[in-house]
Nucleic acid binder design. Structure first.
Lengths: 125, 125
DNA sequence: TTAGCATTTATAAAAATTTTCATATGAATT
DNA sequence: AATTCATATGAAAATTTTTATAAATGCTAA
């Protein structure tokens, strides 16, 4: 979508005001193509990361395996709450899981995490 | 905080289970230092970014100035809603602002944005 | 200077997320 | 086999975020 097309979508008064402004200050070129869409996945990733508990989990598990009860202890949170957040992270493929007896160990999936961070840079910088 | 200290914080049964497991599978070293804290600012940044409208604004304004009414048109959202989100973004210093007559133009503060993305990489990768 | 317009601000309503609590599941110890 | 323990799940409650509505600001053009 070009700036010109957006401008044409405004009501008459607004359009006149903006046109006049752009004519005098030349702050914006009408022929520029405007991109607003971010990948749905990327937004979802950022949302997952935006919770301090989930972000803390990813940081803590970036270079080690830990079982659920130790994760809960480290973050000083109820185990069932941690379980919920682990599920969310797993849902985005951001964790590896490994079972040892009745314990479950998790570790950050750094490949996947890096993929998202690179997407972020590409889209916004 | 070391893994050993976390372990000592568990109740006796749990501690025994975990100790026995670690003794046999050697998946985790008790002497490792565990880091869980992310910078408060960084989390706030990620939260700001986690809304699709705000992320869309940052993408659209990464290389141009646009006035509020055109931003609203481009995202096909009510102008007052856009104003709210602009305020949030301004509050994190993620936007430059410029007034031309009765219009207000915004543009992404790429320096600041880059700063946060770099923090993110440093903390999580 | 006044009337109109672009935008902001305040506040209330709606929607989404997080947390808690009760219960389920599956492995291991007894 | 029965019980216990670590973790998972689901639904309800609490909290936060987003959106909508109404009123206020401040610039400008007439």
């Amino acid at each position: 979508m070009k700036v010109r097309e957006l401008l044409e979508g405004l009501n008459e008064k607004q359009r006149r005001t903006v046109q006049r402004c752009l004519a005098s200050c030349e702050i914006l070129d009408l022929e520029e193509e405007v991109e607003t869409e971010l990948s749905k996945d990327l937004i979802e990733f950022v949302k997952v990361l935006s919770n301090p508990i989930r972000a803390g989990i990813l940081k803590m598990l970036k270079n080690r395996w830990m079982c659920v009860c130790l994760i809960a202890k480290a973050l000083n949170q109820d185990q069932t709450l941690i379980s919920h957040h682990l599920r969310t992270l797993k849902g985005m493929n951001l964790l590896h899981e490994r079972r040892e007896g009745k314990l479950r160990f998790y570790r950050t999936n750094l490949e996947e995490l890096k993929k998202y961070v690179e997407m972020l840079e590409k889209e916004l910088l």
